[in-house]
């Protein structure tokens, strides 16, 4: 279980998170939605301490990761996999080497076993036979899939997805959503997805939370969230300009 408790974060005087409280259920997918620039990625980066809060706690199995020493923090990060917005593949390496990278750096796995595991992950994301290519030779969707293969190669307990479908066409976006759902079922990880691709993202989410004006306005199981009468939720789902969310 991951719990975010009263997290505040500012950048240069601009307060982005103003006391976020949110629980993430183990083995389920929780999606955080919200308008562009509302702080979803900032919140996501607090979950594996890529960013540290100015105030508040981030608890993973009741351990406050914001207070861990470097060695403990690195061990904790080993439990996470992250799919970044732009995939963040190391562009000096081939796709195979990118996926193999965490195994080479963090385990003593032998080359044949490692090769088998990397090829298995590439197959699972539909990139079989593409391992020899460099990130610059791949399309946006293929990069995301390669990023997902890398995020899953260490069999993480928790996977963070930062806007996994941004910049993709609707068909490809649905494909990535299905891939996330399929891999979650196969591996049973706790998924946290940051997205504003609605309603498609609801199909893969067990829980949905909306971040607005620096706080979690509503967090519910997906069906209840969609039926919520909260004006913020309704404005966001319907994409209306008029409402409590200040657009311009």
């Amino acid at each position: 279980m991951i719990r975010v408790v009263d997290v505040h974060k500012s950048f240069g005087g601009q307060q982005v998170l103003k006391g976020v409280n949110l629980n993430f259920t183990t083995g389920k997918i929780t999606t955080i939605v919200g308008t562009s620039g509302c702080g979803k990625t900032v919140l996501l980066k607090h979950l594996n301490a890529l960013l540290l809060p100015d105030r508040g706690e981030v608890l993973v199995d009741d351990i406050d990761i914001t207070k861990l020493r470097q060695k403990e923090l690195y061990a904790m990060r080993g439990r996470f996999g992250v799919l970044f917005q732009g995939a963040a593949l190391l562009d000096s390496m081939t796709i195979f080497d990118n996926v193999a990278f965490p195994l080479r750096e963090k385990t003593r796995m032998g080359e044949p076993e490692m090769r088998k595991k990397v090829e298995e992950r590439l197959d699972q994301v539909g990139l079989e036979g593409m391992g020899y290519k460099y990130p610059a030779e791949l399309s946006g969707g293929m990069k995301k899939r390669a990023g997902l293969a890398r995020a899953l190669v260490m069999d993480p307990e928790i996977v963070l997805f930062d806007e996994p479908t941004t910049g993709l066409d609707p068909v490809l976006a649905t494909g990535i959503h299905q891939l996330i759902a399929r891999t979650q079922q196969a591996f049973g990880f706790t998924g946290v997805v940051v997205s504003h691709t609605i309603p498609q993202v609801f199909e893969i989410s067990d829980y949905v939370a909306i971040l607005a004006d620096g706080v979690i306005e509503e967090a519910k199981p997906t069906k209840e969230f969609q039926a919520s009468q909260n004006p913020v939720v309704q404005q966001f789902i319907k994409g209306e300009i008029e409402g409590p969310i200040r657009v311009l």
Partner: peptide, 21 residues
């Protein structure tokens, strides 16, 4: 460029110290 494209964040998230690497 690695900073701008989150590759350094990716190293941190893989529990790899980017200063060492």
């Amino acid at each position: 460029t690695m900073r701008a494209t989150e590759q350094i964040d990716a190293l941190y998230s893989m529990a790899i110290n980017p200063i060492k690497y």
